[in-house]
Design a protein around this nucleic acid. Sequence first.
RNA 1: GCGAGCGUGGCGAAACUGGUAGACGCAGCGGACUUAAAAUCCGUUCGCCGUAAGGCGGUGCGGGUUCAACUCCCGCCGCUCGCACCA
Length: 876
Amino acid sequence: MSRYNHREVEPKWRERWAASAIDRALAPDEAKGKPKAYILEMFPYPSGRIHVGHSRNYAMGDVIARFRRANGYNVLHPMGWDAFGLPAENAAMERGIHPKGWTYDNIAAMRDQLKLLGLAIDWSRELATCDVAYYKHQQAMFLAFWEKGLVYRKKQKVNWDPVDNTVLANEQVVDGKGWRSGAPVETRELEQWMFKVTAYADDLLQAIGGLDKWPDKVRLMQSNWIGKSQGAKIWWEVESAPDFLPPSPAGQPNHARDPIEVYTTRPDTLFGASFLALAPDHPLTKAIAAHNPAVAKFIEDCAHLGTSEADIEKAPKFGVDLGLRVRHPFDPNWILPVWGANFVLSTYGTGAIFGSPAGDQRDLDFANKYNLPFKPVVLPPGADAATYSVTDEAFTDDGVIYNSGFLDGLSTRDAIVRAIDELVKLDAGEATTQWRLRDWGVSRQRYWGCPIPAVHCAKCGVVPVPEKDLPIALPEDVTFDKDKPGNPLDRHPTWKHVKCPQCAGEAQRETDTLDTFVDSSWYFARFTDPNNEAAPFDKTLANYWLPVDQYVGGVEHAVLHLLYARFFTRAMRDCGYLDLPSGEPFKSLFTQGMVVHETYKSAAGAWLLPEETEVRGGGRVELKSGKPVEVGDIEKMSKSKKNVVDLDAFVADYGADVARWFVLSDSPPERDVEWTASGVKGAWNFVQRVWTLASAGDMPSPTDAPPKTIMLGEPLALRQLAHRAIQSVTDDIENFRFNVAVARCYELVNGIAKLKGDDEASRWVRGEALRILAQLIAPFMPHLAEECWEALGGQGFVATATWPVADPQLAARTTVTLPIQVNGKKRAEIEAPAGAPEADVREMALKHPSVVQFLEGQTVRKVIVVADRIVNIVAN
RNA sequence: GCGAGCGUGGCGAAACUGGUAGACGCAGCGGACUUAAAAUCCGUUCGCCGUAAGGCGGUGCGGGUUCAACUCCCGCCGCUCGCACCA
């Protein structure tokens, strides 16, 4: 028996696996009836180095991939790099390194690190989104989407990040700040390339219902983001307007005196209307502000409102009478005032609402503040029409309509339909559907991204680059200068000057590049055929592998990446790239928790790496200075807070298996796990213990027949334990309960260590149990498992051995321990054969001495026997 | 404010569709081996009362349903995440 030396063992097996190419996914025609399993972790951005926190995501995917392979699946488990993006340009500006060199150096370093983990990845399929070989297909797809009408250009207000000097999508603005830079976002008007995500809005929403293997939380976030609402547009005729608004010329749209269009989900409350309210930047509000100082001031006041959460919450409702009057659609004599109001959003609906105070809290607050009249029109269930009133709490639920003319007596639901019918009849409105989801602006004014294949020609306008002229490669001779903001592509002396593909005249290339979320919207499809030069991927290969059977990644991508990918698969399908009837890229999604770690701050206030500190006496001190260290919050491992444990160093000290085992034990996978020294110790001890047992060398080989003697007592108990462990671990992996699977492995090891006997049966059973153990831990600790498997005389790799199947005879319980309760309190235990008839169990329970004692002087009223579970005697 | 989730020993946590609360790991305590330490091994560890057998209490708090509640229902408290006046 020797001490386990991971420094030799781990590289040895990685070399052998690579030499045998066991991780290579088989082509469909090689698979010979094996079912396919596509396992994918969200691919990393090559930021520089990997820390142990990253390893959890890959370890989880790897457990599933190895488990599926052992269960006879043809597994595709690839890895690649989300390699375009801003940090490369920032590095270029700060350190004078070219983004390309920086990125590929990082990829090389991180690839080496990832390989240390011993992941069962088909490295022959590796890709990087910044390879021309990758993005040229993206350009071709862009053209196909364009032709299909899914790409268009639009001049619109955009979110401008003044630090990154680029446009951000709505999804990329968090709390009014850029998601990456954290700088307050400004508004600019720019001509943008758009992807028509809204073309699939309904399908993207409907299909969420079919994603039954996604976390509910993510499904909810997706549907909230899409935000479908059904309602009505209503046109309110202007009765009178300030004199400075010119009279409406016939046939001119969007004129100041045209009817005001309002969106509502509650046309049933129309009879409760008391005013109209327009957003501060509604065109009409602006037109009036030009002549009315009070309105101008109102707009000014709104602009000064902060955008942070607290500001919005605290902001009181306020507004200004715009001096316009409109007619109620159902009663031409009913005149309502039009106000500007700060709580009306120009970006949602039509930027105008009608206020129905009794049925909407905001409207009610507003009406109360400005003494606008209101009356209740929805009677809550059970309320009395004669006495019911609304003062400062609106009733927003469904009820029965009253005080509402022809709508009286209808339910909310029926009244909505009836009101819309009437609006249509009067030509004053129509039913409509409103979405929160907006089209995806993909233009980025950056260098390190996929060039958009378009040319601007003075004569022909915006012209697509013909597919035969692809790829449009990024020029490498660009300059990065902190003092010159904006896009280096745009500054390049020659790159953008081209001939128009249509008229051959002088023209200019598009210098915007694509949002990097585009790159990650189809990489999973490229993995199915990563070296295809003629096409993004072969249709039959994509059809074979897609959808991804198990996708693993962080919740932080619950909205952006997943929504874009879902859009992309639909667009690719409709452009003929693949079939994928569901349109869904990811069949099953698992969002894993993060690895968190304490943070340390030096006396001087600088963040410290864990290895720069140590525990001395009662506290933690800085190694260099010996000064005490402030122990901060436990946070997600991140470079900026320095609370990271570098993977290379850790693997050198403890081995990859310890890291893998640790991040999967203790905490449920969906919850965060704290990286601690004690947890590492537990994993390390386990590795040593398993090896000590497996290398004892007194076991018979797997081919030896089981001993003929009837197995009883301890050897039988261990066999049963081992076979139950197979059942449990199999089930636990299947259901992402890795922490429980780990606990079952500990139990099995404890059981093996306990069986000390030197007799034939004990030795044979130990051998069997250890081989089972090696197989069960193989998905988690592949190197150790191989070493044990070999020591135990296993054939071939444990990695490719067929997953063990529990002997049902052994796994089944023959006897069960039944607790006996009297009046719900446990008073005794009995051993009974499994599945014993209820009458027998009942009799045994009632005869038990402790039970008899407890029942003394009482009458048994009822005996509840739950088979193989519990007995409860009710008595008094 | 709206929505979702969570709350169990000193710590991370288990507990199948309601059926022995605390599996497993860490830390602790006691012991063996050792000159000693490390490593390893054995035992023990929810609280209270009791020498013990045993009893009582216990899954954030208060109520309820049930023979039986960590689990289901109602009302609070606390924490985490998402959304943000969405008409």
